[in-house]
Amino acid sequence: MSNEELFKKIFEEKFNKEEIKKEIISKEFVKENNKKIKLMPILKLALAPICLTIIIGGFIIFGGKKVSKPDIIFQENNSTQIYVNKIKENSLARLDCDIKTISKTEKLDDSNNNNTANSSQQFEVLKSLKVPEDFNNIEYNLIYVSDNENNKTANIEDAREKKYNVLNNYNFIYYNEKSERSINISFSNKNEPIRDYFFIEENSKTSKINNIEFKIYNYEKTYFTKFIYNNYYFDIETSNITQEELITLLTSIIN
């Protein structure tokens, strides 16, 4: 191979047109997915304060509560029972966070038959993770927050100077080729993962797997849950996966 061919190959590989296009479309998908949740009617009314809080952080907006009576969807024994709390309307609340994300995207290894993520294997806590077979892509993020004590700021210009020096949590997003199905797992053994919304929990029913208790919420095609397992805080959000896939996912983490 000549130098011309070699370097051409390197640049083609590293700035791969098709790969970059896929990443753009998948980012757009994730953005839309988030927006769908974030811009529910009650939040639209609060759009002006949200714009401000993106910069200065820390505002909390509460939503109403509308959780319908949950049905049990899975029961193995008394220590494993899964309920899904369906959200009818406007029960999301939002917390705007001041964070910085460092992202990488990679392809899952085809030889990995049970779709356990390579990148996640470095984390013992995800060693048995099972995601659906068609989830061939993974994006992993490090979520940093600023050290509040050293970064107190009064205006926008100062806010841009902020240092995001505290690693708050890890975040793995698994998704299929068309980016239409995804699983978003945030975790940390030190802090509760940052999420920019939460639920009012009245009327909701608690699920458990091996006596680890948690609550699952469902809004349209999205499931949300958070729990503590093996001294790790987990926060999971899925899009367009089935209840069976959700159960497989949760039981693969809590085992």
């Binding site: 130098n3 370097f7 051409k8 640049f11 083609e12 700035f15």
Partner: peptide
């Protein structure tokens, strides 16, 4: 940049 412009 030179390598990119020259070879690619």
């Amino acid at each position: 940049k030179i390598f990119y412009l020259y070879y690619y």
